[in-house]
């Protein structure tokens, strides 16, 4: 798959596969193409080559059909004047378009999404009144309510404090356990290694390495070159995450 920016910077992926039921983290330096990859996979950017979603070419889907398969949460989330519940209701848009009304099962999906993200008590709040972490959880509830097999998240943990990040990863793990595929970009290397099933390493618009955290741990030099740091697994109960950063 190939895509390019208007500025002429190009981007090329030979093959990469994201699976359901797993948490995949895409790691790489700023500007290595993580966000571009996510955007292209949701059809936001035009591409040459092929992106298959559930066996069908991405560009052959209509917008709503694609949104029934893949949910995407961009890095910038707007705090507009809207209450949390209405926001989460918009997650049902791909299944309705503009015409149908909410059914009982839609209401259930919305309730579950709110509960899962611990936003039920905040559902009447306005988005403008939420903290950064709460706002991100509200948007997460929206993409959960979208009920897709894959969920793409662009830097979901930015602006979150440690507690919120922990809660966030618990939610994402529950989703993966229930069979949804999670693909996310992240800047916290140790956290990603500790909490993901698959790591995808990117550099200058190319996927360098893919594998489980354990299998990638040994490529210390490559990690340092690509990420600026490597990781080491230390099994100590006092550590928050089993992987720690090393030089």
């Amino acid at each position: 798959m190939e895509t390019s920016y208007p500025q002429g910077k190009s981007f090329r992926i030979d093959e990469v596969c994201f699976e359901k039921g797993r948490i995949t983290s895409i790691l790489g330096r700023n500007g290595c193409g993580k966000t571009t990859l996510l955007r292209t996979m949701t059809g936001f950017l035009p591409y040459r080559g092929s992106i298959e979603i559930d066996g069908k070419e991405c560009r052959d889907y209509t917008g709503l059909e694609r949104a029934q398969k893949v949910a995407y949460l961009p890095q910038i989330m707007k705090a507009v004047k809207m209450d949390v519940e209405s926001l989460v209701e918009h997650g049902r848009f791909p299944w309705h378009g503009s015409f149908r009304r909410m059914s009982v099962s839609d209401k259930n999906v919305i309730e579950n999404a709110l509960e899962m993200t611990h936003m039920t008590s905040l559902k009447a709040r306005d988005l403008t009144e939420l903290s950064g972490g709460e706002l991100r959880r509200a948007y997460l509830a929206m993409v959960i309510a979208q009920n897709t097999e894959m969920i793409l998240l662009d830097e979901p943990t930015t602006y979150m404090d440690i507690e919120s990040q922990k809660l966030f990863f618990e939610i994402v793990r529950t989703l993966a356990d229930r069979g949804r595929g999670i693909v996310m970009t992240c800047h916290d290397i140790a956290q990603s290694f500790s909490l993901s099933d698959i790591i995808v390493l990117m550099d200058q618009g190319v996927v360098r390495k893919t594998g489980t955290p354990d299998s990638l741990e040994k490529y210390r030099d490559d990690l340092v070159q690509l990420l600026g740091a490597a990781v080491k697994r230390i099994d100590d109960e006092k550590l928050m995450y089993p992987y720690v950063l090393i030089r």
Partner: peptide, 16 residues
């Protein structure tokens, strides 16, 4: 309403 959430989010929800 979807558009108010920003172009990228709206696109993610399937809106052209």
């Amino acid at each position: 309403d979807i558009l108010r959430l920003g172009d990228e989010t709206a696109h993610g929800l399937g809106l052209n």
